[in-house]
């Protein structure tokens, strides 16, 4: 359906080619979250890998921050339509996290990322391993500001950014693909921006 009188403002071709359908480029870094920014005391921070209810491995902040770190720079896409290019992150890859936990492979094919604010979101393990995802602890060379999910957030940049859980406190491996907070509320289980998987039946 053509909207009468709408011509739009197309981005230049180099920008347009990097924008998934329905997205626009922003230079800001908007903040999207359900509630207040949690106040997290690094002295009490812990990151836990679980299989169901069973803890597999946990780290204090000092231990976690001493793990090998990986850098990634690229584009991120929020389901609320903004995209931001060339964001620079650094953190512990999920591959390195599994290795540090003494796991040869993830125990199941799915997981729920869990935040200190009790937010959850589901991601297939295959979308986090093989260098595809990390628990980020640096943004643009600095510690991640609390509004942007610091001290640590999940980074799975090839999916809509609600999958990159802020204030992440652990990963819980699940036998099945279990819906998280937004996925229970009509958002897509997978969330590929290039296939515009915003809502459950997209």
């Amino acid at each position: 359906m053509v909207t009468r009188g709408f011509t739009g403002r197309r981005p230049d071709k180099p920008v347009a080619e990097r924008l998934p359908p329905g997205q626009y480029l922003t230079d800001d870094f908007p903040v999207l979250q359900l509630g207040p920014t949690p106040r997290i005391d690094l002295a009490r921070w812990r990151f836990v890998l679980r299989e169901g209810a069973k803890p597999l491995k946990s780290w204090s902040w000092q231990e976690f921050d001493a793990l090998p770190r990986t850098r990634w720079t690229g584009d991120i896409h929020c389901v609320t339509k903004w995209s931001k290019f060339d964001t620079a992150w650094e953190g512990v890859s999920v591959d390195d996290l599994l290795a540090a936990a003494g796991l040869e492979a993830a125990p199941t094919a799915y997981l729920l990322a869990e935040g200190f604010d009790d937010y959850t979101t589901n991601v297939p393990v295959a979308d986090l391993t093989g260098g595809r995802g990390m628990v980020a602890t640096r943004y643009a060379g600095e510690t991640i500001p609390p509004d942007h999910g610091g001290p640590a957030r999940l980074l799975v940049p090839h999916l809509y950014f609600w999958k990159s859980a802020k204030w992440v406190k652990g990963l819980r491996f699940t036998a099945k693909d279990e819906a998280g907070f937004w996925e229970l509320r009509g958002y897509h289980m997978y969330g590929d921006p290039w296939r515009e998987q915003r809502f459950s039946d997209d």
């Binding site: 053509v2 909207t3 739009g8 329905g22």
Partner: peptide
């Protein structure tokens, strides 16, 4: 919104 050439916002 959709422009005549199919561009959408």
């Amino acid at each position: 919104l959709t422009a005549p050439d199919g561009y959408r916002a």
